[in-house]
Design a protein around this nucleic acid. Sequence first.
DNA 1: GTTGAGCGTT
Length: 257
Amino acid sequence: MSHFGRSGPPDIVDTYSLLVLNITFRTTADDLFPLFDKYGKVVDIFIPRDRRTGDSRGFAFVRYKYADEAQKAVDRLDGRVVDGREITVQFAKYGPNAERVHKGRIVESVPRSRYRSQSRSPRRRYRDDYRDKGYRRRSRSRSRDRYEREKYRARDRDYRRRSRSRSVSPDHSRGRGRGHYDDERRSSSRSVDSASPVRRSPSPRRSSSPHKNSPSKGESPDRHSRDGRSPTPRSASPRGRPAASRSPSPRNSDVDE
DNA sequence: GTTGAGCGTT
């Protein structure tokens, strides 16, 4: 996707690619085009984007027609603040096909015709390539990963805490004084046993209406539900319920109220 | 709505 509407690389011959780093994630080729075009003839501008989300990766490739212009652009645009961020302009080191590039110009191309004969060149599809490089380079968002990790850790912590709760039980260590106290302990243990390992209600509140709407009037919203159609309009076929075991309240039909 | 080392598309 080039800025010129062409598909793929227009013509990498006699073109000098510049790598623009540190650009904002919102910066597009349209924003970089005028800046780079001012210093020379820009052949094409390409900004790699994530295939999953489609977001910019934060860097772009600007191809100039002449090396001197590219050099000038690098010298003039390198360190320029674009969109509130300092961009880094430098010559590309590698080409689109992993070719060695010198000053943005491809000086060494991969001899695919030669390797074609040999099985040394495995047919790496886009998927494979992506899985090899893309995912590894995916650590572009450290904060996000950290956030996810934090979440995970929180869960782990909760889990651990629950486990510890049981371990803390002194009844295990208390092997002394087992008189009538035993009864009490048993009672307590039983209580804890049936409350701890099973499942603890994280929300003891009866607030079952998270709606921010606070009807001061004595309106009955449930009436709407009841009076309305089926309380569980999950599918277009209310009768086509293949799950017979999914009846939370079998007396729903009985309930007249 | 967020992020930030790096090298690319039909």
